[in-house]
């Protein structure tokens, strides 16, 4: 565990707390893509199959359980508690276009051709692009609530912080995980446009608005 990894995980935790807080205080899931949130459930469930057969640490165990359960809880909030506030006509990105290619890539580029390894690889690729339906939805509406932008910023910063963590681990432990690194760089890259608007506008007190 190094500082980049720890801060990254804390940013990830923070993003989930911000999202749940937004939904509870506004009693709404407006502006949040159900499809992106559903993809995160798939990501966590397929990645953490190792909960059943490998023990890493208490930290690791608790975080995995938290990510699986909180992502399911968010789906529950969107699907039942705050269902009337979700507008499916804005959430129209086709998730098959993401899941299909990710699965195909996982079958081709993996470390071992076995079930859990392919599921792990699939989850890494899918996480990299899972934000697409959310970004697509914001592109369509052209705006986002400030609290939603804080959520997205924390979520983007999480994976961005994993990059210095991988560099640090290469020098201190000699470990390299090309699948996670390439996917992590792609994932962070997808946030660059968003980060630009977030840091230059939202953090200066302006509303998140995309040019028409």
């Amino acid at each position: 565990m190094n500082i980049f990894r720890l801060l990254g995980d804390l940013a990830h935790l923070a993003s989930i707390f911000i999202l749940v807080h937004k939904m509870h205080t506004t009693r709404s899931c407006r502006g949040i893509s159900f499809k992106t949130q559903a993809l995160y459930v798939v990501v966590f469930v397929t990645r953490y199959i190792d909960l059943f057969y490998s023990w890493i640490s208490l930290y690791n165990f608790v975080m995995k359980i938290f990510f699986i359960s909180s992502s399911c809880y968010i789906l529950y909030l969107m699907k039942y508690r705050f269902r009337p506030t979700h507008d499916p006509t804005l959430d129209t990105f086709k998730v098959e276009y993401l899941a299909g290619p990710c699965f195909a890539l996982a079958l081709i580029f993996n470390y071992h051709f076995d079930f859990t390894e392919i599921m792990w690889t699939f989850s890494i690729y899918l996480e990299a692009v899972a934000i697409f339906p959310q970004l697509f939805m914001m592109q369509r509406t052209g705006e986002a609530e400030t609290i939603t932008t804080h959520y997205l910023a924390a979520l983007g910063i999480y994976r961005a912080l994993y990059i210095p963590n991988w560099i640090y681990r290469y020098y201190t432990e000699g470990t390299v995980d090309p699948i996670a690194i390439v996917a992590g760089i792609v994932q962070t890259g997808l946030y660059l446009d968003f980060f630009y608007v977030y840091f230059t506008k939202v953090l200066q007190g302006q509303k998140f608005e995309l040019p028409a």
Partner: peptide, 10 residues
């Protein structure tokens, strides 16, 4: 050369 990846990340 690089060691194989350790799956201890989240």
């Amino acid at each position: 050369s690089a060691n194989p990846p350790v799956k201890d990340e989240l």
